[in-house]
C-alpha cells in the first residue's frame, strides 16, 4: 500500500486513483474533525469534500514537510472555521440556559427528558455549547488533542504556532471547560 507522500507525488501528476486512495484513507478523520467544529453531518461532509478538492488543487505546490495529515488538518480547521463564520453560529442553546434547566431540580423538567437518548443529546448540546464559547485557538487545540490525539508538537504544526502556545491554550481551555461543565462532571 503506497504511503501518503507517495500518493501525493502521484497526485501531482494528476493521478486520480491516488486521490481516491487518499480520500478513502483519511475521510473518516477529516469528517470527524469537521463534525466537531460544525456540529452537523451535512456541513461536515461539505467541509471534508472541500478539503480533498483543495488537496487536489494544491498538490502541485505541496512540499513534503512532516505528515500529510498535518497539512490536511490545517485545511480542515480553516475551512471549518470559515463555515462557522459564514453561518453565524448561535443556533445551539446557550450553556447558561441549559445549566439552569438541569440544575433547577424542577420535576417538570425531569419529565421533559425521560430517556437516556434525550439526555445524551442534551449533554452533546451542552458540550458543544461549551466548546463554542472557547476562542477559536483554544477550541482547535482541544479538538486536535482530545479527538485526533495529536501531540502538542503536531498541534503546533497544524496551528502554525509554538508548542508553548499550544500548552497555554490547552491549559486555559481545560480550566474554562471545567467551569462550564462542572454540573455534569459531578455526575460522572
Amino acid at each position: 500500500m503506497p504511503d501518503d507522500q507517495e500518493l501525493m507525488k502521484r497526485l501531482k501528476k494528476g493521478d486520480e486513483e491516488a486521490l481516491r486512495l487518499l480520500v478513502n484513507r483519511h475521510r473518516q478523520s477529516i469528517l470527524n474533525l469537521a463534525y466537531r467544529y460544525v456540529g452537523n453531518q451535512d456541513d461536515a461532509e461539505e467541509v471534508a469534500q472541500d478539503v480533498f478538492v483543495n488537496l487536489y488543487r494544491s498538490a502541485s505546490r505541496y512540499t513534503p514537510q512532516g505528515k500529510l495529515t498535518t497539512y490536511m488538518y490545517r485545511i480542515a480547521v480553516n475551512l471549518s472555521l470559515n463555515k462557522i463564520r459564514d453561518r453565524k453560529v448561535g443556533r445551539y442553546l446557550s450553556l447558561h440556559g441549559l445549566s439552569e434547566r438541569n440544575t433547577a431540580g424542577n420535576p417538570a423538567d425531569e419529565t421533559q427528558r425521560p430517556d437516556t437518548i434525550l439526555e445524551n443529546k442534551e449533554l452533546e448540546a451542552v458540550v458543544r455549547a461549551a466548546l463554542d464559547t472557547l476562542p477559536a485557538g483554544q477550541r482547535t487545540a482541544v479538538i486536535l488533542k482530545r479527538f485526533n490525539g495529536l501531540s502538542y508538537e503536531e498541534i503546533a504544526e497544524v496551528m502554525e504556532c509554538s508548542v508553548s502556545a499550544v500548552e497555554s491554550r490547552l491549559h486555559r481551555a481545560k480550566l474554562a471547560l471545567q467551569k462550564k461543565l462542572k454540573a455534569y462532571a459531578k455526575n460522572e
Binding site: 463534525y35 458540550v127 479527538f147 471547560l177 462550564k180
Partner: peptide, 12 residues
C-alpha cells in the same frame, strides 16, 4: 472529568 465529558460530542 470535564475532559472525559467531551466524548459526548460524538462522531460523524
Amino acid at each position: 472529568l470535564s475532559w472525559n465529558i467531551l466524548d459526548a460530542l460524538g462522531e460523524a
